[in-house]
């Protein structure tokens, strides 16, 4: 093992962790408020990235409907995904309130299948490597370490920016949960549905809200991931990886958010 590479790997790993954390945040949000483990979050992340790509007119087959700059495409995708989150909650998860765990798990698994198939049909299964990223892979920051660690630690700018956005988003959500009325209501709902209802909190509205916010987070995570690895993420066969990330990190960050 080449110990000289450890600091480099460590830094890259921490920066990658930021983006995984923000994806997991969406799972945690829904799980904490409504005790539904969302197996379809990976598909929402993918859909968010695809929508951004589409709104930014990256299709390049001469039939683009939208041709927006990235700063306009991202908010538009976020708005659409928030709406989709609300629709999913209302149509699919609301009828499942109070049903056995198996039925709820199967519901999100079915949703995952549906979203995956729908995305493949609308956008095609071929990988998209022209995500309109503001960074190119060669944009790097080099921190010189003369004499050790192969003389330098290299930070990809895209990775660094992703990490900063992830941290800022996580901070914003923390402030939201800590200091706003709605955030307080969401925490109360996650603690006890019946008690929350008895103090006048509209629990179904909170469920809807958490799905809407999860849609927003998913888009954010999808865009960040796509900026980083464009080709791979939007490649459907790679989705199981994303699902693995879901599965393994959701639980841990659930403890972290406690």
């Amino acid at each position: 093992m080449n110990w000289q590479l450890v600091p480099q790997q460590f830094v890259t790993g921490v920066l990658n962790g930021g983006i995984i954390a923000i994806i997991a945040l969406g799972i945690v949000l829904i799980y904490r408020s409504s005790e539904v483990f969302n197996f379809s979050h990976g598909q929402l992340v993918m859909l968010g990235a695809f929508l951004t790509w589409w709104f930014a007119g990256a299709n390049e087959d001469g039939k683009e409907i939208f041709n927006l700059p990235l700063w306009a495409a991202i908010p538009l995708a976020i708005a659409v995904m928030a709406g989709l989150g609300l629709v999913i909650e209302r149509l699919a998860l609301r009828p499942m309130t109070g049903q056995p765990l198996l039925a709820i798990i199967l519901m999100t698994l079915g949703l995952a299948q549906f979203l995956e198939g729908a995305t493949a049909i609308v956008f095609g299964i071929e990988p998209k490597n022209n995500f309109p990223s503001p960074f190119s892979p060669s944009d790097v920051i080099t921190i010189p370490f003369p004499g050790a660690f192969n003389d330098a630690i290299i930070l990809k700018q895209a990775l660094l920016a992703t990490f900063v956005v992830a941290i800022v988003a996580a901070l914003l959500f923390m402030l939201f949960f800590q200091y706003t009325r709605t955030g307080l209501a969401m925490r109360a709902t996650s603690a006890d549905h019946e008690l929350a209802r008895s103090v006048g909190i509209n629990v179904p509205r909170i469920f809807g809200l958490s799905w809407g916010i999860a849609g927003v987070i998913a888009t954010l995570g999808g865009v960040l991931l796509a900026t980083l690895t464009g080709v791979e993420v939007l490649n459907l066969p790679n989705l199981p990886n994303l699902r693995m990330i879901n599965a393994s990190y959701g639980e841990r960050s659930h403890l972290w958010l406690h």
């Binding site: 049903q99 199967l106 519901m107 079915g110 299948q113 549906f114 198939g117 493949a120 049909i121 095609g124």
Partner: peptide
């Protein structure tokens, strides 16, 4: 125009939809 996509990806859509509809109407 989207022939190959439909042939490849219609199955998961169909199964997902059937499963969800079934859960909603049967459980409710």
């Amino acid at each position: 125009a989207i022939q190959s996509r439909l042939l490849n990806s219609f199955r998961p859509i169909f199964f997902g939809l059937v499963l969800m509809i079934f859960l909603i109407f049967r459980v409710a």
